[in-house]
């Protein structure tokens, strides 16, 4: 950090000022002047929080994608289909058993099993043939999308929030101060806050596994030099299958989360595939912290854009991606190859 500050002090200073301004906007009650320019603080805070929680969902989906790509160079454009499948199965499980929590292990196991099949049938046979993998997974996503449409129809489903997570909660963030001096706190859906916490936990756990355990060591070695790891006689194919299953399962679990705080319908698969693509392009291919940073940036850009410039919110996302490509093609936290 200190070395970075010494290398380019102006950039760091500007970034620090920006962060400070943002923190002030979030924490302090707004004077009337700021409200006049940007509208009520409640709207701003809600946009920020929706951006962060949407980023959490994007992270859940994109981290599997980036992990799979980083380790195996497998391009799985059927990742969005896994998300959608997870959402539908999660809906069925939650609807029939009435237990929202039960949906998570069930979906994780089913979608992870599908991931294992994909790895054995498709990717293992086409190792290194990126274009062919892309084409086959595009074909798979067409077929899966139509099968899902066949089974579940064109309706949009919403997975019901369980009782212990429904309703709003007060956050320690002041939105306004009443005339009698009492502060008004922001009320926000409880389920979203918990999803954010869960995503952070998943992210930290992934980081710990990758950086502190033996299997994580294998994965990191595989990312760096796959051939060398295979030549050392380690069970690389087993690691591949495990990582693919985990990434696929995470996408399926993402489907439940997405179905709970948004909804699932045909077309969501391409939306989330696209979000994953943009997130990993911005964050850097194969990097988990990169996926987190990219997901946060894209989620925030989308939601803030939606509130303050509804027509152009998509363009913001795109402009961020183009800027990253133009100035740092390997992604913000990607390793230079």
């Amino acid at each position: 950090m200190a070395a970075l500050a010494r290398a380019n002090p102006i950039v760091v200073l500007l970034a620090g000022l920006l962060v400070a301004a943002l923190l002030w906007l979030i924490i302090a009650p707004w004077p009337p002047g700021v409200t006049g320019v940007m509208g009520p603080k409640r709207v701003f805070l809600a946009a920020i929080l929706s951006g962060i929680t949407l980023g959490a969902l994007y992270f859940l989906v994109a981290s599997g994608f980036t992990l799979i790509f980083g380790l195996m160079r497998n391009v799985n454009l059927a990742h969005g289909s896994l998300y959608l499948l997870g959402g539908y199965i999660g809906f069925e499980v939650a609807d029939r058993t009435g237990s929202w929590l039960l949906a998570f292990p069930v979906v994780f196991i089913i979608v992870a099993a599908l991931g294992v099949v994909l790895q054995y049938v498709v990717f293992r046979r086409m190792e290194g043939e990126e274009l062919r993998q892309t084409l086959v997974t595009i074909g798979l996503s067409i077929v899966i999308a139509d099968l899902l449409l066949w089974i579940w129809g064109g309706k949009s489903y919403q997975i019901l929030t369980p009782d212990f997570l429904s309703g709003p909660m007060d956050l320690p963030l002041i939105t306004a101060v009443r005339s009698d001096g009492a502060a008004v706190y922001l009320r926000y859906p409880r389920v979203r806050i918990w999803i954010l916490i869960a995503a952070v936990v998943v992210g930290v756990a992934m980081w710990l596994v990758i950086n502190r355990t033996r299997i994580g060591m294998l994965i990191r070695a595989g990312v760096d030099d796959r051939e060398m790891l295979a030549a050392s006689g380690l069970p690389i194919q087993l690691v591949f299958v495990l990582v693919f299953a985990f990434g696929a399962g995470l996408a399926g679990v993402g489907g439940i989360v997405g179905g709970t705080f948004q909804s699932i319908s045909p077309g969501e698969d391409t939306r989330f595939l696209l979000a994953s693509l943009v997130v990993v392009i911005v964050g850097g291919m194969g990097s988990i912290p990169g996926a987190a940073l990219g997901a946060l940036i894209i989620g925030l850009a989308e939601q803030i854009g939606l509130v303050y410039a509804p027509t152009y919110s998509v363009v913001f996302t795109f402009l961020i991606m183009a800027a990253v490509l133009a100035f740092r093609p390997q992604g913000l936290l990607g390793a230079r190859r």
Binding site: E130, L131, T134, L274, V314, F318, L325
Partner: peptide
């Protein structure tokens, strides 16, 4: 600026945008 699979992803993302 990119190659191979990245080209597909980037053009796909722009098309969707």
């Amino acid at each position: 600026r990119t190659e191979g699979i990245y080209t597909i992803m980037i053009t796909l993302a722009i098309a969707a945008a």
